[in-house]
């Protein structure tokens, strides 16, 4: 499914609607929703504290009821109220605009379908973020990669008495410059894409999206301790890839 599959019914959807705070498409007051935005990274707290109180307030309850009735304007409200930080999440975690748009579309379609099952135990923003992260992970896993490396080749090895088999070098000047240049984003993503899925996902959830160890564990279905171990190994592998990158960066 792509984000550009426009339907003929599109003309029914108002374009250029002004969404001033406090007035939603169907007259819902959205001010309270705005007062509890998705937190920005880096220090994302646990889900219970992600966006204020753990249960929807009255304003959200009105919107949720309208969503359950299938009101078009309520879906538009949900998207416009909550979409922007979730698009940022998808962009951050995927590093690719096209994939981010696809993931956001998949996430909202999942949310639209699942709204009947939404029990109101968390805020809408929290719920939508969780769905978006799941869509992003599916997108991440589906990406074709030509260059996956073995972790064995990327983490340091030690002799029996605990010394480095290959003494580590400092980053070359070229590698340091590259990471400070406008190319750094591309260089980092190229390195991240070489990690096996299990490690790529942890780096993306923890270090790029800024989820807590516990949240990342919930998404991946592994323990917090496993997340910590994988994150460290993923960083070690990235260190190897980034430290070595000087060779193929010279113009």
């Amino acid at each position: 499914m792509t984000a550009i599959s426009l339907s003929p019914r599109l003309s029914q959807i108002p374009r250029n609607v002004s969404w001033s705070p406090g007035i939603g498409a169907a007259g819902y007051s959205l001010r309270l929703l705005r007062s509890a935005p998705m937190p920005r990274v880096p220090d994302v707290p646990l889900p219970s504290s992600r966006s204020g109180p753990g249960v929807p307030d009255g304003e959200e309850a009105v919107l949720i009821a309208a969503l359950r009735r299938g009101e078009d304007t309520a879906f538009a409200s949900l998207l416009r109220e909550h979409g922007a930080p979730l698009l940022a999440t998808a962009r951050r975690m995927l590093g690719c605009e096209e994939d981010a748009r696809d993931a956001l579309q998949d996430a909202f379609l999942s949310a639209f379908r699942a709204v009947h099952a939404f029990e109101g135990k968390s805020r809408l923003g929290t719920w939508l973020h969780r769905i978006t992260v799941n869509s992003v992970l599916m997108k991440l896993r589906s990406r074709k990669r030509a260059c996956e490396r073995r972790m064995e080749d990327l983490v340091p090895h030690f002799t029996d008495d605990g010394h480095h088999v290959e003494p580590p070098c400092p980053f070359s000047d070229a590698a340091v410059r590259a990471l400070q240049s406008s190319e750094s984003r591309m260089i980092l993503w190229r390195a991240i894409e070489q990690l096996p899925d299990a490690y790529r996902e942890v780096i993306v959830l923890r270090d790029i999206e800024g989820l807590s160890t516990e949240e990342a564990g919930t998404h991946l279905g592994i323990t917090a301790n496993a997340i910590k171990i994988r994150l460290h190994r993923a960083r070690q592998a990235l260190r190897t890839l980034l430290g070595d990158c000087s060779e193929d960066l010279s113009p």
């Binding site: 984000a3 426009l6 599109l10 959807i13 374009r15 979409g83």
Partner: peptide, 12 residues
């Protein structure tokens, strides 16, 4: 993107 998402909801 907003239009595409809302439109695909109607299609799905």
């Amino acid at each position: 993107l907003v239009r595409a998402i809302l439109a695909s909801r109607k299609e799905s």
